[in-house]
């Protein structure tokens, strides 16, 4: 069915869980900046977790639905729009994601998923290369996007256990694994609070605070970087690379954010703060396992709420 985009919002793109296997060709993993919110949005409407949904940044769109449908909005919260639960929209309804209450990025899923072609093993939009998603670009006013028909029926009147939700905060304490050049920076990263600047985007979150001074070391030879890498350019203001990060980097790496804590960063808006604490690789893997365990429980619970027509 068709979904008419009356207003596109600041930056609304189609995203999924990203592309694998193309980093050596310079193609980033991409996909949702907050993959957990996208997975939950899909699960709530009975979709496979990796189906494409809309990633909405700071200012929401206004959408009109051609037919009745189940949708869900997870991640950032918007006034008057239910969060973290499926809800019904009806033919001709206009849904407006107006004032943002909390967070930075929301994921709007629709039962059946958005209908966009697969490019290089993914359906997400990589804006710098005009690759994938809806015509390789962000949605514009007047666009018409399509969803894949679905036969699933959801039973209403329930909500998910708050304990499975990511613990978003405007001042999160984020876990970091020390990076290859960590020894050249001392402990500054773990002492102070950093502020998220407006120059942040899908490629990286730029932080500002007491500059992190590198005490030793020379020019580095570029090596692979990835979402989560905390690199420090010469001005000492750290950048956390996010989903669309370039695949190689030559800046020193003070650390790398644990995969399980990426959603906490994804939801920070300009002006929000962040603090870091040090953990080991094994501890980061444990955090990721615990997250998967929570999602598995949710999947199990949901299987009773959703059936085929």
């Amino acid at each position: 069915m068709e979904i008419k985009v009356h207003h596109a919002g600041m930056q609304t793109t189609v995203q999924d869980l990203g592309r694998r296997g193309h980093l050596a060709q310079g193609v980033p993993i991409g996909g949702a900046v907050d993959p957990v919110a996208l997975r939950l949005a899909n699960l709530l409407v009975g979709n496979a977790e990796d189906l494409p949904a809309l990633e909405i940044t700071l200012t929401g769109p206004e959408l009109e639905f051609e037919k009745d449908a189940w949708i869900a909005v997870c991640g950032a919260r918007f006034e008057g729009v239910p969060s973290w639960k499926p809800f019904r929209v009806y033919a001709g309804d206009r849904l407006k994601l107006g004032s943002r209450i909390q967070g930075c990025r929301a994921y709007l899923s629709i039962c059946g998923g958005f209908d966009v072609p697969e490019v290089m093993g993914g359906r997400g939009t990589f804006l710098p290369a005009a690759l994938g998603g809806f015509e390789g670009r962000a949605l514009r006013d007047g666009d018409v996007v399509r969803s894949v028909p679905s036969e699933r029926v959801l039973s209403g009147h329930w909500s998910i256990d708050e304990r499975v939700l990511p613990r978003y905060s405007r001042e999160p304490l984020v876990s970091v694994i020390p990076g290859s050049q960590a020894d050249e920076f001392g402990e500054t990263l773990y002492r102070d609070r950093f502020t998220v600047t407006a120059r942040s985007n899908r490629m990286g979150i730029r932080l500002e605070g007491t500059p992190i001074a590198r005490t030793s070391g020379g020019e580095l030879i570029s090596t692979a970087v990835a979402p989560g890498t905390l690199q420090v350019p010469p001005d000492g203001n750290p950048i956390v690379l996010m989903a669309d990060a370039q695949t190689l980097g030559g800046y020193p790496r003070v650390g790398h954010v644990a995969t399980a804590d990426i959603p906490l960063l994804a939801q920070l808006a300009p002006g929000d703060g962040v603090r870091f604490k040090k953990i080991t690789v094994a501890e980061a893997h444990e955090l990721a396992r615990a997250e998967e365990h929570r999602l598995a429980l949710l999947r199990q619970g949901l299987s009773e709420k959703i059936r085929r027509a």
Partner: peptide
Amino acid sequence: LQPLGDVAVVAT
């Protein structure tokens, strides 16, 4: 061999 966070191993 060094870790790149919890996602990769860098072999120099």
